[in-house]
């Protein structure tokens, strides 16, 4: 086995080059001005202060709120879905889980363009409404279209971890709860729900993290004026060219994510 260990080295080198170095550069850029000239480093906290300006702070608040709403909806849809799937026999379960993940086989952009066609003012849904004699509804470029896009994209990441923890659960635990006098609701709340909490926590963390850092979906379904953290970072790097400020936002986002994961971990442990 020993000589195989050496095979891991190229990956270590690539990980270092592709992950550690960029991370280091982001932190470095976040705390400097005109940091493009590596030899003349001017350290400053101005970039971080700028994030606190109302314009940008609002973007953070909006992103976090949208992430929370998306996560909440994913949980409300995902838990019952995972629960129902876990009640089928194993071969059927595998098939159903595959069905849940099938949308992910299609490119994210294509899926989002599909939603645009469906939701547009003269899109498929509105044309159907008009045929039925109802007045069309504006759905594109609203919170609705963005949340819809986010939920549809991230739902599998909620369903899969919850399903995993539910399907691992021993069926006889539920029978034991019934046997000891618990009705269906009591057994679900005190046994099933408690034992599936690790899956729920994992799902929440994954969906929330992806929802607050996404930029393609809000850009396409929310339009140009719909700015979330991801869009802000993208525009700072691509169109504005202020790499220092972009790095500062990325840095703060990373810190928020780390804190969120810590909190959820604590919550998970506290529950057991």
């Amino acid at each position: 086995m020993k000589h195989f260990k050496k095979l891991v080295r190229p990956y270590l080198i690539w990980s270092f080059v592709l992950i550690v170095v960029p991370l280091f550069l982001i932190v470095l850029y976040a705390f400097t001005v005109d940091g493009n000239a590596v030899l003349t480093l001017n350290f400053t906290l101005d970039n971080l202060k700028k994030v606190l300006e109302p314009t940008y702070a609002n973007v953070f608040v909006k992103s976090l709120a949208l992430g929370a709403v998306t996560t909440g909806i994913c949980l409300l849809i995902g838990y019952p879905l995972a629960y129902m799937i876990a009640r089928f026999k194993e071969s059927t379960q595998n098939l159903l889980i595959m069905l849940v993940t099938i949308p992910m086989w299609i490119n994210l952009l294509l899926r989002t363009y599909a939603w645009m066609n469906l939701l547009a003012d003269n899109g498929i849904i509105n044309r159907l409404l008009m045929k039925l004699g109802l007045s069309p509804v504006t759905m594109m470029y609203t919170d609705f279209s963005v949340v819809l896009g986010l939920v549809c994209n991230f739902l599998p990441f909620m369903v899969i971890p919850i399903h995993t923890s539910l399907s691992k659960m021993d069926r006889s635990l539920i029978e034991a709860a019934y046997d000891l006098g618990a009705n269906k609701v009591q057994a679900f709340r005190q046994i099933t729900l408690k034992l599936s909490m690790p899956g729920v926590i994992n799902g929440i963390v994954m969906v929330f993290l992806m929802a607050i850092s996404t930029f393609v979906i809000p850009k396409l379904l929310g339009g140009g004026q719909y700015v979330l953290i991801g869009n802000l970072i993208e525009s700072q790097f691509i169109s504005v060219g202020d790499w220092n400020f972009g790095s500062a936002i990325s840095f703060i986002l990373a810190v928020i994510i780390l804190i969120a994961m810590r909190v959820m971990k604590r919550f998970d442990k506290g529950d057991e």
């Binding site: 021993d170 635990l173 029978e175 034991a176 046997d179 009705n183």
Partner: peptide, 17 residues
Amino acid sequence: PPYKRPVNTVFQKYALF
């Protein structure tokens, strides 16, 4: 239903919570 019966069960693999 099981929860209304005046019997209790000790399960094969204990089924402790």
